[in-house]
Nucleic acid binder design. Structure first.
Length: 823
RNA sequence: GCCGAGGUGAUGGAAUUGGUAGACAUGCGUGAUUUAGGAUCACGUGCUUCACGGCGUGUGGGUUCGAGUCCCACCCUCGGUACCA
């Protein structure tokens, strides 16, 4: 660099503060519903839970998402990129109990702080559309959604065994139970029966399963499929016999995916909790059965697991009848049968199911082989044979193969009315009731007059406001039930005395529709106007953590489909394209947590290096979907780069008087632009930044240019600023101004590259002998084989290799390589 | 067990369809500058060998002129899920 003129030093903190203020003042990022010249495009990053401080994970998730939104905005779209707060939920209540504040005050304070921290990111959030799920103008609509679901028979009240967290004193969704423990409190979860509100998500199981065409990561799609867990099989009735061995009215209904093994049934197993157990157990077995049931209840899921899956169980003394061969079959109870999956009863086929095999071995029950193939013929079974094969010992079905037998036996059972085809799902209906304070009240009234019964709150009465002055300390009852003022009301139908529902809604309900509200966040008359819906929905690009695969992302899809069927929205899927970023870890490679003491605070990193260097470092670290440990000594790399970039842009090289024009600068800028464009569209921020660094370094290496290249130089600098704009919004804006361009760089267009300019006239081609690289030669682009071979032979080193040897074959790939095979 | 992703220098990671392995960056080394610096700049840096060269992408085999990339078998790590009948 020959220019002696002193330039100002790069000072990230000063310029970042300056531009954030100006953008805010100019409302640069407020997005109108319509822009006559541009196509609308909706980008979304998951909104944060209001936990108190923005942590590095938020930056890792949001900064690249912002860069993407900015890129598509430069590509000529009218991009909506909103932000808000997921503000209801247990931690607010827990923190309030601990810190002796009120959940609302705690939450509102956190929102204030987090909004400030978010603004330091320099993202293009449209704050005009901010939502706060705990604000009454938001949860009014959460309640409205509940009413719509209720009116369309998608919400129902039912008794159910629920997961009960004894520490937080609330129910939990299955998704919130990890290894039998509460994902929040860590307490061992108990089973309790309660009256609860459910959503019929299972009605949508098949449609939710159908996700092949979605532009989502395959891992997330497969997680959802596994979670829904569809299996096709048959339900079969086994008639229970009385003590005289006569058929009774009682039947055991089992679900099996292997009806072809029906003749192999040698016992029946009920879950200890199965309602038939008490009715069929014989007098002699009563005590033993009761004892087993009690011990099961006391066993936590952890204990069940830790017993190395050793089978336990008790005979009930009762028998049932095999529907096809009329054999008498013992009925047992065992805890390996889950009361909540299928029918809570299993037909024991020890020869062809490993669990049944273990059980039969332990209790010396008969093992009848009914499937065989060439491999296991005549062999004594030492474990269950679970492969397909041919039926044996199965009367009229002998000789059929597994697949045929499944169909024929199912058909036969159906015809004889002893069974039928059944599709079973692992996923259960969504339990939304929470016995907690800090959530949206469920808009239901229970009228004391039995004729009215359960009465939904009329839409005009919404929102049912969450009272501020309530005792929310945990007592096992819903805090709202302790507030006379809240509970006592009049029935909307008969005007008689009535009581309100005192449970609140699962917060996943709030987050199932927030992206819908962004499109029309201030609408007082409707959840969204059809105009706003047409403008923005569905979301074009959603990004967020894969930990939400089976909860938030599945619930949102259900909500959207339900909304379609209720006539609220038009489309089938809420998120057209979804990408899940990985997780940023502590410097020790572990998950960041206060207890480990490995938390890196983004605020201090921003203060030290500036938001631009910090953002770009997070993107440079590695592939975005991979995550990984944060390296405190690595940020300096992107900081140094921005420093070099700063000096480069503000200093022109010496201009010589040589007339000859070079194509080098154009090649650098256009090929970098090509690569950067490809990379950002494919979420490859790390390689995009690497190539921008390469371009920066290449331009710095040029310390003099000739007069005719001046235009190319200025274009290169311009391209560089524009390409950096989505990644580092502050430094690019500042440099853009300093080189005398029009405000704002963020309203400029992404440049277009010219493909011919990305190629130069000569290229280095590797010359191999027998596939081993020996030398690289500078060859004209597009040269043919004889030319290249000739040049190679002329090379001294190659010539020595070829000396006295016979050339068997020459492989030449144009502009790629030359391989000479010799003997 | 099942489903999904992955295994490349000291470290994070590059390598569009099989075609120069290690781009870019950190760290480290040497030098420059500075009163000093954990600031900045330049050069070097896969392993091995004095060198010619040889060896190198989890392990073993295969296909090919040529394999990080394709095929077969296996090992390991991470994420999800599980007596799911």
């Amino acid at each position: 660099m020959q220019n002696s003129e002193k330039i100002e030093e790069y000072n990230p903190n000063a310029i970042e503060k300056k531009w954030q203020k100006k953008w805010d003042k100019d409302k640069l990022y407020n997005t109108p519903n319509k822009d006559s010249k541009k196509k609308n495009r909706y980008h979304l990053t998951m909104f944060p839970y209001t936990s108190g401080d923005l942590h590095i994970g938020h930056w890792y998730a949001m900064a690249p998402s912002d860069s993407l939104a900015r890129y598509y905005s430069m590509k000529g779209n009218n991009v909506l990129f909103p932000m808000g707060f997921d503000a209801f939920g247990l931690p607010a209540e827990n923190a309030a109990i601990k810190g002796k504040t009120h959940p609302k005050d705690w939450t509102d304070g956190n929102i204030e702080r987090m909004r400030k921290q978010l603004k330091k990111m320099g993202a293009m959030f449209d704050w005009n559309r901010e939502v706060n799920t705990s604000a009454d103008d938001y949860y009014k609509w959460t309640q409205w959604w509940f009413l719509q679901l209720y009116n369309n028979d998608l919400a129902y009240r039912g008794k159910a065994l629920v997961n009960w967290d004894p520490i937080d004193e609330t129910t939990l969704a299955n998704e919130q139970v990890i290894d039998g423990k509460s994902d929040r409190s860590g307490a061992l979860v108990e089973q309790r029966e309660m009256e609860q509100w459910f959503f019929r998500i299972t009605d949508y199981a098949d449609e939710l399963l159908d996700n092949d065409q979605m532009d989502w990561p395959s891992s997330v799609k497969s997680m959802q499929k596994n979670w829904i867990g569809k299996s096709v099989g048959a339900e079969i009735d086994f008639s229970i016999l009385d003590s005289e061995m006569n058929t009774t009215e009682l039947k055991i209904n089992v679900f099996t995916t292997r009806p072809d093994t029906l003749f192999g049934v040698s016992f029946m197993v009920l879950a200890p909790e199965h309602p038939l157990v008490d009715k069929i157990t014989t007098q002699e077995q009563k005590n033993e059965v009761k004892q087993y049931q009690d011990s099961t209840k006391l066993k936590s899921e952890i204990e069940r697991e830790s017993l190395l899956k050793e089978k336990t169980g008790v005979f009930t003394g009762a028998y049932c009848l095999h529907p096809l061969n009329e054999k008498k079959i013992q009925i047992w109870i065992a805890d390996y049968v889950s009361p909540t999956y299928g029918t809570g009863a299993v037909m024991g086929v020890p020869a062809h199911d490993q669990r049944d095999f273990d059980f039969a071995t332990k209790f010396s029950l008969e093992i009848i082989q009914v499937i065989s193939n060439s491999l296991n013929n005549k062999q004594e079974l030492i474990e269950a044979f679970t492969e397909d094969g041919t039926l044996i010992n199965s009367e009229q079905f002998n000789g059929k193969d597994t697949k045929t037998a499944i169909n024929e036996i199912t058909d036969y059972l159906d015809k004889e009315k002893i069974g039928k085809l059944k599709i079973q799902y692992r996923m259960r209906d969504w339990l939304i009731s929470r016995q907690r304070y800090w959530g949206a009240p469920i808009p239901i009234i229970y009228c004391e007059n039995n004729e009215c019964g359960i009465v939904p709150v009329p839409e005009n009465d919404l929102p049912i406001k969450l009272p501020y002055d309530v005792e929310f300390l945990p007592t096992g009852k819903s805090p709202l039930s302790l507030s006379e003022e809240f509970v006592n009301t009049t029935c909307p139908k008969c005007k008689g005395p009535a009581k309100r529902e005192t449970d609140t809604m699962d917060t996943f309900m709030c987050s199932s529709w927030y992206y819908i509200r962004y499109a029309d966040s201030k609408n007082k008359n409707a959840v969204i106007s059809s105009d706003s819906e047409n403008s923005w929905l569905p979301v074009d690009q959603y990004t967020g953590g894969a930990e939400h695969a089976t909860m938030h992302l599945l619930y949102s899809r259900f909500f959207y489909k339900a909304a379609r069927d209720m006539g609220v929205l038009k489309d089938d899927e809420p998120f057209t394209r979804y990408f899940s970023q990985g997780q940023i870890l502590g410097t020790d490679g572990q998950r960041m947590s206060k207890s480990r003491g490995n938390v890196v605070a983004p605020d201090s990193q921003v203060e030290k290096w500036g938001a631009d260097a910090f953002r770009s470092y997070l993107m440079f670290l590695g592939p975005w979907d991979q995550g990984g440990p944060y390296d405190l000594s690595g940020v300096v790399g992107t900081h140094r780069w921005l420093n070099r970039l700063w000096n480069l842009v503000l200093t022109r090289p010496t201009i010589t008087t040589i007339e000859e024009k070079s194509t080098m600068i154009k090649k650098i800028s256009h090929s970098t632009l090509k690569k950067a464009t490809y990379d950002i569209e494919n979420f490859r921020f790390n390689t995009m930044i690497a190539s921008l660094m390469e371009m920066t370094n290449a331009l710095i290496a040029i310390d003099e240019i000739n007069k005719n290249d001046l235009k190319s130089w200025d274009e290169a600098i311009e391209f560089l600023c524009l390409m950096i704009a989505p990644l580092c919004p502050h430094i690019s804006e500042e440099l853009w101004m300093q080189i005398g361009k029009e405000y704002s760089i963020h309203k400029m267009s992404w440049p277009e590259y010219i493909d011919e300019l990305t190629i130069s006239d000569t290229q280095e081609i590797p010359i191999q002998i027998n596939g081993k690289l020996r030398v690289s030669l500078d060859i004209m682009v597009g040269a043919d084989e004889p030319t290249v071979l000739q040049q190679a032979k002329e090379n001294e080193k190659i010539a020595t290799y070829l000396n006295q040897k016979e050339i068997i074959k020459v492989i030449y790939i144009q502009d790629k390589l030359l391989n000479i095979v010799i003997k």
